[in-house]
Simulated scan of single mutants.
Amino acid sequence: MFKQISMKKIYLIFITIAFFGCKNTSEDNGKLKVVTTTSMITDLVKNIGGDLVEIEGLMGAGVDPHLYKASEGDVSKFYNADVIFYNGLHLEGKLVEVLEKMEGQQKTTVALGEFLDKKELIGSTYFTSNYDPHVWFNIQFFKQFAEKVTAVLSEKAPKHKAAFEENNTVFQEQLSQLELEVRSIIATLPEEKRVLVTAHDAFNYFGKEYGFNVVGLQGISTATEAGVQDVQKLSDFIIENKVKAIFIESSVPRRTIEALQQAVLSKDHEVIIGGSLYSDALGDAGSVEGTYIGMFTYNVNTIVNALR
């Protein structure tokens, strides 16, 4: 496991890299070297860049971006990158200072969430940005992400602009098809059953777009832990609303939802764990759920099947 580092150590790494003139490997193979943070953004850049870019994603399956801290290896990757894409809106809270230092190193850093219309975002006092950062659960926002990635890659490697734009056209069509499929599946679930209880509030944009009442045990950020009162309050909500199923998340310890289930069962109400949803990270690389489209489809099917 990579060693986590302090900001003081990061400064020393910057100085060391600059002194020894660490060579950018994109000069060796002619490809843009791109570093991404979350697995959703990694998959997005792969769809647009294809074989024309060299991508290094920091966060794999099951990694919580709220709690992720930079390692020495991460800082080196940032320094050697031509472009850094990240979610922004303070999702990668513990990486913010490092990314800001990269801007000072004249690196192209792109916080994709910052380019969305703030009037369309959900407000949140839990984040410095004052917005809920889980914007990828609105497919239309993700389509805007793809447009921005295409523009940046085209600017950095203009000779491949036509290829990037063609890849974006294909991906936009796939996302439009995903939207149609998602709405078709959700239409089979009666509106009164659209109550989604999860480990933390990662699904508010999903709920807003598709008519779900979303309730998270830990709130929007996993940096805050649920207490006994939170569990009891939510268990009462589940009973009052006759919720059939609650859901764990792949990037959040399952014990929080298991404790909630036990609290509900102790009050003589039956509730099942309807499955594990992918919230802040995709599934394993190489799996269907390891792609944005596969993850979204899996989540919707899991939710609808359990609540139906």
Rank of each mutant, 00 (worst) to 15 (best):
N47T: 03
I273W: 06
V53S: 01
R183S: 13
R308W: 05
L116T: 15
V300L: 12
H134S: 09
T302C: 11
R194Y: 03
N80E: 14
V170L: 14
M59P: 07
Y278W: 11
L44P: 05
L217D: 07
N87Q: 08
F171E: 03
D117Q: 10
V288C: 08
D74S: 05
Y292W: 04
E192S: 15
L91D: 07
N87G: 07
T42Q: 03
T108Q: 15
Y11E: 15
G216I: 03
A187N: 05
L95A: 05
D74A: 00
E56C: 01
E27C: 04
G57P: 07
G60H: 02
K159Y: 08
E179L: 12
I10T: 06
Y11R: 15
F78I: 11
V182M: 05
V231L: 13
E72I: 14
F247A: 11
I55Y: 06
T42P: 02
I48W: 06
S279Q: 09
V34E: 00
F19C: 10
E56Y: 11
N87K: 09
F142W: 00
L180H: 14
I220V: 15
K242A: 00
L180Y: 11
E289G: 03
V75H: 04
Q261W: 02
K94T: 06
H269C: 06
E181K: 15
G50C: 00
S124V: 11
F171W: 08
V288Y: 12
V135M: 12
A111C: 02
T150V: 12
E179Q: 15
A281W: 06
H160P: 02
A157H: 04
Q177W: 04
A18Y: 12
K107A: 10
E289F: 00
L89I: 13
K94N: 15
S235R: 04
L112M: 12
D284G: 09
T222M: 02
K244C: 08
L52G: 11
A146S: 10
A199N: 10
E173A: 15
H269T: 13
F2H: 08
L44E: 00
D64M: 01
I185R: 10
Q177H: 09
I139M: 08
Y86Q: 12
Y292V: 06
E92Q: 11
F20S: 14
E289L: 07
K161W: 03
N130H: 13
H160T: 09
D132E: 07
E92W: 00
F171K: 06
L89Q: 10
T108M: 14
Y210G: 07
L58Y: 00
A81P: 09
A163Y: 13
V63T: 13
D64A: 04
N167I: 03
N47G: 11
I248K: 00
P190S: 13
Q177L: 13
G211Y: 01
S71I: 09
E258V: 06
S39M: 12
F212A: 13
R194W: 01
S276Q: 13
C22F: 13
L307S: 00
F212M: 01
G49Y: 12
G283N: 04
R308F: 00
S287V: 02
R183H: 11
